Computed example of a mutant assay.
Amino acid sequence: MQRDIAAVEEMDGPGADPVLLERTYAQFSLVNRCVSGWRGMYVGLVRPALPRNATATILDIGCGGGDIALALLRWALADGYDVKVTGIDPDPRAHDFASRAGAAAGFGPGELEFRRAASADLVAEGMVFDVVISNHVLHHLDPPALAGVLADSQELAGALAIHSDLRRRRSALLLFGLATLPLAGTSFIRRDGLTSIRRSYTRDELARVLPPGWHAHAAGLYRNLAIWHAPRRTGR
């Protein structure tokens, strides 16, 4: 099955139905809990990279509805970290939803911040975070945009960058299609999810497009991880 780079996700269009889009952002939390595996990545990768003797900082690039940023914040706080999580997304609709979700969760700006911004904007500001992550973003990007996000991640990550994405397999299309039948017509989740799978990379394809210093890992049956570790710095 070839990668379908011409497929377009409906929610990304400027004319996307606002009701379906709102429901899509609301359903991301359920879908990501089932398929994204971030709890395991937090325990195995993110948590060991967070400092105990200073405020730990995490950046979520392309944060969408903000559910991953919120989950990472809750887990780190539960583990006793002094932590701030920042989520960025250039789409004003995503920013609006995530900001409302953060406010509803009761977190203040010292713990959680959502910004309408791209990774390049934060690089220009000279910002650095302990850990930089993204979830299901890479398959959206054309080659120049992918190279830009990866380069920005290296500038922004003081310790670790993890970009988690779908891994294209025929069985993924079948299982996701069946599992999301109850959501059909209620949001863009099912249609755009199937499009995302068709647009996503195999592990070997991802490895070929990653620059030096990055490593592609197959996580479970249906996820890829692009991981970069910052060079060890004096005093860290």
Score class of each variant (00 low, 15 high):
7 A>N: 13
7 A>M: 14
7 A>H: 15
7 A>V: 11
9 E>Q: 15
9 E>W: 15
10 E>R: 13
11 M>N: 09
12 D>Y: 15
12 D>Q: 15
12 D>M: 13
14 P>Q: 11
15 G>D: 15
15 G>T: 14
15 G>V: 08
16 A>R: 12
17 D>H: 11
17 D>I: 02
17 D>W: 08
17 D>R: 09
17 D>A: 08
18 P>T: 07
18 P>M: 09
18 P>N: 09
19 V>D: 15
19 V>R: 12
21 L>C: 08
22 E>H: 12
22 E>K: 06
23 R>G: 13
23 R>Y: 10
24 T>Q: 03
24 T>S: 10
25 Y>R: 10
27 Q>G: 11
28 F>C: 02
28 F>E: 00
30 L>S: 13
31 V>W: 00
32 N>P: 03
32 N>D: 12
33 R>S: 05
35 V>H: 03
35 V>A: 05
37 G>S: 08
38 W>A: 00
39 R>S: 08
39 R>V: 06
40 G>K: 01
41 M>Q: 11
42 Y>R: 01
45 L>K: 04
45 L>Y: 09
47 R>D: 04
49 A>L: 03
50 L>V: 08
50 L>W: 00
51 P>A: 04
52 R>T: 12
52 R>G: 12
52 R>H: 14
52 R>D: 10
53 N>V: 02
53 N>A: 11
53 N>F: 05
54 A>D: 11
54 A>P: 04
54 A>I: 04
55 T>A: 10
56 A>P: 03
56 A>H: 03
56 A>R: 03
56 A>W: 02
58 I>S: 00
58 I>R: 01
59 L>S: 01
59 L>N: 05
59 L>T: 03
61 I>Q: 04
61 I>T: 10
62 G>M: 07
62 G>P: 06
